[in-house]
């Protein structure tokens, strides 16, 4: 079976500094991939690069191939021009943005904004047909149909995020990219929106790329997860395996920093240091300066390679059978 989306060696640079530095991944039809990492690690940039929506100051390269259902030939996104991308956007890939507050035009009614997107990609020109489509979508995402006649500011944050999801579905895409879709919402709304995404994915056979810094959110929703650090994927694999048995020190420390419900009280250990400046990345492994297990080998760039079934990590010492205590390892590393 061929995958829906294949990305290889995706690079985004800003005046020569790498923001995204050689990202490869595959996504199957109907699969949910989680993209995790600290702020500024290149998650959102990767998402925007997939739709070629980066601001002009950023340049991107690499190949991206999309094979949507029913398309005779694969779509080579990397080679598409702006006009060509306009046909792909929303028709095949749509986007749910972070910050539902500002994702809709504040001075236009919601149904007008949805009708605009629907008319762009289909022959449905009739007002009735479009209207029926909009009310169907509103029912699907659990909103009253009357909300379509409203302006964005008249809805709550959760309702607006539902509108965004309805908007993302209005051209029956095969892939939805959700960039921090729940960040601006309270916990109850978060759970509802995630459940909605999950349900839609199952019923519509959507593929989903879910971007979040919240590992809990990704763990609940995704099949596979990719951990990004400083513009690179450092570990990827099935969610369960990565969470239960991480194979990259960054993943390991990230998971350790999560508080455990019912566990010992106290502050979770933070990862010391800060992500590198993309203008002058460290030599070799990007995580080396912050890694308690770093050794001389780490001055050479570690490739992302399969270390367990379906699980890959970019670390010279993977697979890790047992994780030494990070503090002891760091102390030993300093002495050596």
């Amino acid at each position: 079976m061929t995958s829906l989306l294949e990305v290889s060696d995706l690079r985004v640079t800003h005046r020569g500094s790498p923001i995204v530095d050689g990202v490869d991944f595959k996504l199957d039809r109907g699969e949910a991939l989680g993209l995790a990492g600290e702020s500024g690690c290149g998650k959102t940039t990767t998402a925007l690069a997939l739709m070629k929506l980066l601001p002009p100051a950023l340049t991107q390269s690499g190949s991206m191939t999309l094979r949507p259902e029913g398309a005779e030939e694969p779509i080579n996104l990397g080679r598409r021009t702006e006009a060509g991308m306009q046909l792909v956007r929303w028709r095949h890939i749509s986007l749910v943005f972070q910050g539902a507050m500002n994702s809709l035009d504040p001075v236009q009614r919601i149904d007008a904004q949805m009708a605009e997107a629907i008319r762009l990609h289909s022959d449905q020109k009739g007002g009735k047909e479009v209207g029926r489509k909009i009310s169907d979508l509103f029912k699907t995402v659990g909103l009253p149909v009357s909300a379509a006649r409203r302006y964005p500011h008249e809805l709550s944050g959760g309702q607006r995020q539902r509108v965004m999801i309805a908007l993302a579905l209005c051209c029956d895409p095969s892939l939805v990219i959700a960039d921090e879709p729940t960040t601006a919402l309270d916990v109850v709304m978060q759970a509802q929106v995630l459940q909605l995404l999950e349900r839609l994915r199952e019923s519509l056979g959507l593929a989903l790329i879910l971007i979040s810094h919240d590992l809990g959110v990704l763990g609940e929703t995704c099949d596979r997860i990719a951990i990004m650090y400083a513009g690179r994927i450092v570990e990827t694999g099935p969610v369960r395996s990565v969470f239960d048995d991480p194979q990259h020190p960054y993943t390991k420390l990230l998971l350790d920093s999560l508080p455990v419900i019912g566990g010992e009280r106290g502050l979770a250990p933070p990862i010391p240091g800060a992500p590198p400046d993309p203008g002058s990345p460290p030599e070799g492994c990007r995580f080396r300066p912050r890694c308690p297990y770093a050794k001389d080998e780490c001055l050479a760039d570690p490739p992302l390679r399969e270390v367990a079934k379906g699980q890959s990590a970019a670390c010279h010492f993977a697979p890790w059978k047992k994780w030494p205590d990070p503090r002891a390892a760091a102390a030993a590393g300093k002495k050596a």
Partner: peptide, 20 residues
Amino acid sequence: DFITVKRATGLPWDRVVSRH
């Protein structure tokens, strides 16, 4: 953000500018 979203829907740039 909504400008990026409008572009993401495949709306040509000149119409993003004039309509939104």
